[in-house]
Each structure stands twice: as C-alpha cells, then as structure tokens.
C-alpha cells in the first residue's frame, strides 16, 4: 500500500501520536508532528512511497510548534533529532522546508558509510550525472528539468552518496527543493506536477518542494555507475553556452571541497573520490538559462563512452 492510499485521518493520528514511519529516500524516518499542514505536505511529497507500519527506522525526528507564551505571539516551529535541536526555531509556516533540511542534516552529519557531496545526481543508461554547484549556479533547476522532462532518474537533488570504493553512486530520492524563479519555471514546464505551496521569506528565499517521480522512488536501491561530473554555471550574459572539459585533478579538488564528510573520512574519502573521478568525465557548463539547450548538451554528453 502506498502512503497516498492511507486515510488522512490515520496519517494525522500517527503523526501526532506514535509517529509516522516514512521512506525518506534511502533512509526511513519516524516523523512526529502536531503541526497542522505537515500531514498534507507529507502526502504530496511522499504519497508514492510504500506505507510502512512497523520497521527499524534510521532517524527519529520531530517537527513541533515552539512551546510557551511565544506560541500565541509569533508561532514558531522546532526541528529535533533524537531530542537534540540542531537549528534555531523558524516561523511556523516553514515546517515542511524545515523538515526537509532537517532530514538532509541527519544524513550528512551521521552517515559516514559513503562519501557525501553537496551535489544533485541523476541517472541515465545506468550512468550517473553529478551536478555540484554553489547556490545560484542553477544546479537545482537543471536537476529538476532533467528529472521531470528529460527522462533522467533522480537519485538526489542535494546529497550525492558515493560508495567508499568509488564504484557507484547510491540513490537517496527525496523531494526536490526549488527556490524563487525556478519554482514557476518547473511548474510551467511540467503541468500538473505535485508540489507544496510556496513558502516565502525563508533563509533561502521562496521555497517549494516537488515530489520525485515514481521511477525515482521505486528504484531507490538501484545505484548508478560513475559517468559525468558537470559543474554548471548560470550566466545570463552569455550568448549561447560554453562547455569546457575539466581536468580530473581539478574536479577532485572541487568535489572534496563540496563534501560534507571529507574531514571525517580523511584519507579514505580522498581515495574514494580519486577512484570515482578516475572513471568519470568532468566538464564545466556555462549556460544562459535556456534549459532545452542545456538538456540537449547534457544528453549528448551522456552518450559518450
């Protein structure tokens, strides 16, 4: 049974009571929340995951309104993982984005079985396409366009998990987080796509979360082989696009800098990245926002042997 088929009263009951166990990508999370909107958002974002009645879960998280007088003055929401609150509370309407950030934090701070890079990752023909990128580089928009309109399978829009022998990328398919202008771009590109209502004025601007495709969720255990590492750069002033090959040592240094747990894995992390990069090809793509063109170039790259 899928989560979407569960009575919404039962979902709310679980969320507010013993906790709802959700398949959140590669990991399972027990979510507890008395926040009002979160039940609907969870349905929107995780409706196509299997409903889990009882299981060993990985993360125990709560998303609850702040307590005390404040809750009447300016309602706030707190995220806690195993009773620890790693973030300062946020305005109550940011419950769902906070849950998603919190779940990413759970993985990047505790899971050291893989080397974790701050990058979007997709798969085509068994090969991984990794899109690292600083905020504003356009990695999320590109990732969403490839996942929702070009037949790529989403592995993750935020955390790329590479096996320590460098042989493969492990999927962690979770909702895609889009910001500001890219929200409308993707909503227009894919009519009827399931996403949460836009929340404005978060730390990252306006945010909306998009449900990953069924194919991404169903293949959550199917890894991808090393393929292409593409550093995107959004540049509205450029006439068309610019594609440059990046040397592997340069790419290695960039991936290490973008890794959350490189300082934890130390030499092991370096060796994982070396092995992975050795079987990948690396490029830098500067594009002017013409997504159709960018997709065309990337599809060509993926055909490379």
């Amino acid at each position: 049974m899928k989560l979407a088929e569960v009575e919404s009263a039962q979902l709310s009951h679980l969320l507010q009571g013993e906790g709802l166990i959700v398949q959140t990508g590669r990991f399972t999370s027990r979510i507890n929340s008395s926040s009002e909107n979160i039940s609907n958002d969870i349905l929107t974002l995780y409706g196509n995951t299997d409903f889990i009645e009882s299981k060993l879960y990985d993360f125990n998280v709560e998303i609850n309104p702040g307590k005390g007088l404040r809750k009447w003055l300016r309602p706030q929401i707190t995220f806690s993982f195993s009773s620890i609150q790693p973030f300062t509370p946020l305005p109550a309407n940011q419950a769902t984005p906070m849950l998603e950030w919190g779940l990413n934090w759970c993985v990047s701070n505790h899971y050291h079985q893989n080397i974790i890079i701050h990058a979007a990752v997709l798969e085509k023909n068994g090969k991984a396409l990794i899109l690292p990128g600083q905020p504003g580089a356009g990695k999320s928009t590109l990732c969403a366009a490839l996942a929702y309109s070009a037949g790529f399978r989403l592995l993750s829009d935020e955390l790329t998990l590479i096996e320590l022998d460098g042989s493969k990328v492990n999927p962690n398919p979770r909702p895609v987080s889009l910001k500001n202008k890219s929200i409308d771009i993707i909503r227009e590109m894919v009519p009827g796509i399931l996403c949460t209502e836009t929340v404005h004025d978060t730390q990252k601007g306006s945010v909306s979360l998009f449900r990953p495709a069924d194919k991404a969720v169903e293949n959550a255990n199917k890894p991808a082989k090393p393929g292409i590492v593409l550093f995107p750069k959004f540049n509205p002033d450029i006439a068309e696009y610019e594609l440059i090959e990046v040397s592997r040592p340069h790419a290695l240094v960039e991936l290490a800098n973008q890794s959350f747990n490189y300082p934890v894995l130390c030499q092991q992390g370096f060796e994982a990245l070396s092995a992975f990069i050795d079987s990948s090809q690396c490029f830098r793509l500067e594009y002017n926002g013409d997504l159709a063109k960018a997709i065309e170039i990337i599809e060509d790259l993926m055909l490379y042997e």
Partner: peptide, 12 residues
C-alpha cells in the same frame, strides 16, 4: 551503521 559511523567520526 549508526555505530559504525560513530566510530569513523571518533577516529577522525
């Protein structure tokens, strides 16, 4: 994995 990762972290 929780305990294996915690060991890796302690070593680092």
């Amino acid at each position: 994995w929780h305990f294996e990762s915690a060991t890796t972290m302690a070593e680092a």
